[in-house]
C-alpha cells in the first residue's frame, strides 16, 4: 500500500521472491563499519556558554528575529 502500486494476485509471489533477493543484497549495508550512535559525555551547559558574548540565564542572547509590527 505504501507505494500505491496495484498488483495482480499472481504478481505477489513473483515480486516477493525477487524483492527479498534484492533486499538480502542491500542488507550488506548493515555490515558496513559505522560507529554506533551512543550517548556520551558532551559539553556542559556552562562550557558551551563559556565563550558566548552575551549569555542570559543559561541561554545565548540574540537580537529579535521579527520586526516590530
Amino acid at each position: 500500500m505504501l507505494a500505491r502500486i496495484g498488483l495482480e494476485p499472481d504478481d505477489e509471489d513473483f515480486y516477493a521472491e525477487q524483492l527479498s533477493g534484492i533486499l538480502g543484497h542491500i542488507d550488506r549495508l548493515q555490515q558496513s563499519r559505522l560507529r554506533d550512535d551512543e550517548p556520551r559525555r558532551s559539553l556542559t551547559q556552562e562550557e558551551a556558554l563559556a565563550n558566548a558574548p552575551a549569555p542570559v540565564d543559561g541561554f545565548f542572547r540574540v537580537p529579535a528575529i521579527q520586526e516590530e509590527a
Binding site: N51, A64, I65
Partner: peptide, 18 residues
C-alpha cells in the same frame, strides 16, 4: 555569527544587522 562565540555586535537593531 556573533551568537555563540567570538566577536559580537549583539546590540544591533535586528539579527541581520547583527
Amino acid at each position: 555569527d556573533g551568537v555563540r562565540y567570538g566577536l559580537s555586535e549583539v546590540d544591533a537593531a535586528n539579527i541581520t544587522d547583527e
